[in-house]
Nucleic acid binder design. Structure first.
Lengths: 262, 262
DNA sequence: CGGTATTTTGAGTATCGTCAAGGCCAGTGG
DNA sequence: CCACTGGCCTTGACGATACTCAAAATACCG
């Protein structure tokens, strides 16, 4: 395995920090200070960024790619407790070491901040502190979304819920969600195995659930990791979602992104 | 249903804010300011504190009792995404209304803070902001614990995991966990129905899981809501927990509390 | 003591986990 | 160019588990 690439932020990267929505609203001086203590690291899929029960060596912010937060049980079973995407901040902790490991689910690029320097900056900048607070609150909300999904008794429901979360929370990320000729396409960023660990099921059940949803006419499986949403309402129904209304806005959002993009 | 009781903080309550571990470390002036904008409210079991998708009218802190955070699905199914206990803070939100409803699971007493006043105070006191940050990070950690539990494929495992969380995270609360003559007793603060909503299963499955754990010699069911832990290791095994070592410390903690208590 | 809510039990069916085998695809090396 | 290989996804069969519906037992409260 090649050594991870580490380099200071350079001219080409400066837009990187600005691109992340969290930091774009910061005053310039704070952002400059952040860039000073920022190093860019590249990881390849499968690499471990932070071991469980290890002091996180730094505070990180995902620039590109997907990370998985996971806990391992004594019997080797693994449970994914969250996905980190572009713009997400990790490595914050209360006191002791955090209890989750962080691995690259895909090739990934992240900004890292030396912990003491970052915390010092946090003290000085109320703006930054609020930004971080928002990030944490947002993550808490996402964690509750995962709980909702895991609460579904049927695996079909959990997979449907996952797809809907992809449509909403991850809509703005990369090119995961696209709308083309009125068909909504989803690129699933993680493999079936990870999906199984995330949704609390076995790989086979996940596979069967996908095909069951396809048979019901909710989705079409173009490739294992490329899903077309045929009937959003039916999908929401399977997930037990309260209302498909909130997805209409998503569609609109996607549409506007597309219009803006070309 | 009787009107909820609302009253300003009074002499007898002043210890309440101090008792909450979060606030005890605050500088006196900040705590005084908090007490100025604090009102005590009492709710009885089943009352709704905050509706979903409603702007939380205040920021709250549980003084006594249990609250449940829950989301309701269109089909009436409910999923509990967290329990709030003594010392927990709720009502913080990022922008829009929060997406969870909060109800009293038992009779409860809470401190409420007028939102604008609280947020103003938050601006002025870095100490308070850090306190809140810790609280949120802690809650995030708990949410991940719930995810771990929900990830268990067997209901038995989820119930076992719930009992262990009760031993650890809720150990310091009220008199939920007691050690008497070397037997560890747990008082389960919520009924089977809520438990089912929390663990993503049906009431009947929860009941069967309890009795299955009893048959295996892990626990003894004295009353439906009163459990004796017979074999902590076996329980941890059922939950798939990494290591029972971390529970040894809990036992010790309980022991010390008991010693201190009498 | 009665009345209600909660918990438990039972029987039948659907779903899922498990084990095993097969298929698809990309990269490798002949 | 093709066969081979390894990883991932899918499919099938079977046993274990959980959900559903219904009813009984228990606890709780006045």
């Amino acid at each position: 395995m090649p050594d991870q690439v580490v380099r200071p932020i350079s001219r080409g990267d400066q837009c990187a920090l600005q691109r992340l929505s969290h930091f774009s609203s910061l005053p310039n001086e704070t952002r400059d200070a952040l860039e000073d203590i920022c190093r860019v690291r590249s990881y390849s899929a499968g690499q471990t960024l932070i071991d469980a029960d290890e002091d996180a060596p730094y505070i990180g912010c995902v620039v590109q790619g997907f990370l998985r937060m996971q806990k391992t049980l004594h019997d080797g079973r693994q449970q994914i407790v969250g996905l980190l995407v572009e713009g997400d901040i990790f490595g914050l902790m209360l006191n002791g070491p955090m209890s989750v490991a962080i691995e690259a689910a895909t090739d990934a690029e992240i900004c890292t901040f030396h912990r003491p320097a970052f915390e010092a900056l946090l003290q000085r900048s109320t703006h930054l502190e609020q930004t971080i607070m928002l990030s944490v609150l947002n993550e808490l909300d996402r964690a509750r979304d995962w709980m909702m999904i895991l609460g579904s008794t049927r695996v079909r429901g959990r997979v449907a819920g996952f797809l809907l979360v992809l449509c909403t929370r991850f809509a703005k990320v990369d090119h995961l969600v696209t709308l083309r000729d009125d068909t909504l396409s989803l690129k699933i960023p993680i493999g079936r195995t990870d999906l199984a660990h995330l949704l609390g099921a076995r790989v086979e059940s996940i596979s069967r659930a996908f095909h069951a949803l396809a048979d019901k006419g909710c989705i079409a499986i173009k490739k294992p990791d490329l899903i077309e949403v045929i009937d959003l309402n039916a999908l929401a129904m399977e997930a037990g979602e309260e209302d498909a209304a909130k997805f209409a806005s998503v569609i609109e959002l996607i549409g506007s992104v597309r219009r803006r993009g070309r």
